[in-house]
Design a protein around this nucleic acid. Structure first.
Length: 276
DNA sequence: TCTGGATGTTCAT
DNA sequence: TGAACCTCCAGAG
C-alpha cells in the first residue's frame, strides 16, 4: 500500500528498529542473497525516504535501494525475547537484531547501490511534499504550460515525488479541480493550494499510516449518514468509490482508465472547465 | 482451485 | 501504448 507517506514511515521504522547497531541481513527467498551478504553484520547508519524510494545506508558507499512498486511491503515484528519467526511467503530481504525482525516482500526494486547512484535516483525525482528541502516551484515549472492533464502530472514522479493514485484523486477533489484539465490551465494560486494541502495530508498520513482526506464537516457522522469503512483503510472522498454517491453532493462518483491508471472524480464537485 | 486486480515503474515498440 | 515484473488476497466457480 505504498504511497510516499508509507515510505517515510518505513524509513523511520527501520531507523528505530535497527539504526546505529549492526544488523543481520539475509535473503530467505534468495533473490537478494549477494546484497544481503555484503551488508550482513554492518551498522545501519541512515534510513531515508525520497518520494516512493527508500534508502537504507550501511556505510559510506553501501545503500540498499528499495522501491515497493504496486504491492511490495515491509513488515516489522518485535521479538520480545521470543524465537525468530520463520519467514512467511517470499521474503526478499530480512533484517534482524535481538529485538526486531523486518521482512521485505515483493518489491519492484531491492538493490545495493553506491552514494552516487543514490544521488542519481533522487535527481530524477520532483519535489517530495514530505521533505523539508522540497521546492514546489520546481513542480510548478513542469506543470504550467504543459498540455498533459493535471491528473497525469500529479502522478508523474519527475514532476512530484511520493504522490500516488489515492492522494492524486483526493487532492483534486478537495480543490474542485477536474482531473482532465491540462497543466497549463492551472492557475498558480490553485497549485499553491494543492501543494500546501499535499504537505498537510501526507504528513497526517505518515503519522496515521493511512490516507484520510475527508474534512470533519463531511464525515458520515457530520452528514447524518451511516458510518462506512473504505476497503483500503482510510476515509476518502472519491478513490475507489465509483458508482457510490459523492459524500458532498450526492452525485455518482465516476471512474475511468487514465494513462493506464484508475482515475476517480465527482463530475459535479469537479466540473469540466471550472476554475478553482 | 483459479482468476483478476492493486496505492507502481521501466522498457520495448 | 502495451507488456513485463514483483506478490498477495478477495471473490468466483
Amino acid at each position: 500500500m505504498p504511497e510516499g507517506h508509507i515510505i517515510h514511515r518505513l524509513a523511520a521504522e527501520n531507523h528505530r528498529a535497527f539504526g546505529g547497531r549492526s544488523v543481520r541481513a539475509s535473503s530467505p527467498q534468495g533473490r537478494f542473497a549477494d546484497g544481503a551478504k555484503l551488508i550482513d553484520g554492518r551498522e545501519l547508519v541512515a534510513a531515508e525516504a525520497t518520494g516512493k524510494h527508500l534508502f537504507l545506508g550501511f556505510g559510506e558507499d553501501a545503500w540498499v535501494h528499495v522501491h515497493l512498486g504496486l504491492y511490495g511491503g515491509f513488515t516489522f515484528a518485535e521479538l520480545g525475547g521470543g524465537p525468530v519467526p520463520e519467514p512467511v511467503g517470499l521474503v526478499r530481504l530480512r533484517l534482524e537484531n535481538d529485538e526486531h525482525v523486518a521482512d521485505l516482500r515483493g518489491p519492484n526494486t531491492c538493490a545495493l547501490i553506491t552514494g552516487a547512484e543514490k544521488a542519481a535516483v533522487a535527481a530524477r525525482l520532483g519535489p517530495d511534499p514530505l521533505r523539508a528541502d522540497a521546492d514546489p516551484d520546481a513542480a510548478w515549472r513542469r506543470i504550467t504550460g504543459s498540455r498533459t492533464t493535471i491528473a497525469a502530472l500529479l502522478m508523474d514522479q519527475k514532476v512530484l515525488a511520493g504522490v500516488g493514485n489515492v492522494y492524486r484523486a483526493e487532492v483534486l477533489f478537495r480543490h474542485g479541480i477536474d482531473p482532465h484539465r491540462a497543466g497549463r490551465e492551472l492557475r498558480r494560486a490553485e497549485w499553491d493550494a494543492i501543494w500546501a494541502d499535499l504537505v498537510a495530508l501526507m504528513r497526517e498520513g505518515v503519522g496515521a499510516g493511512r490516507i484520510d482526506t475527508v474534512r470533519p464537516e463531511h464525515t458520515p457522522e457530520a452528514m447524518g449518514r451511516p458510518p462506512r469503512v473504505d476497503d483500503h483503510g482510510g476515509e476518502v472522498y472519491v478513490y475507489r468509490r465509483a458508482g457510490l454517491s459523492c459524500l458532498v453532493c450526492g452525485t455518482e462518483v465516476r471512474t475511468e482508465e487514465h494513462a493506464s491508471r484508475n482515475l476517480f472524480w465527482c463530475p459535479s464537485c469537479q466540473p469540466a472547465g471550472a476554475r478553482g
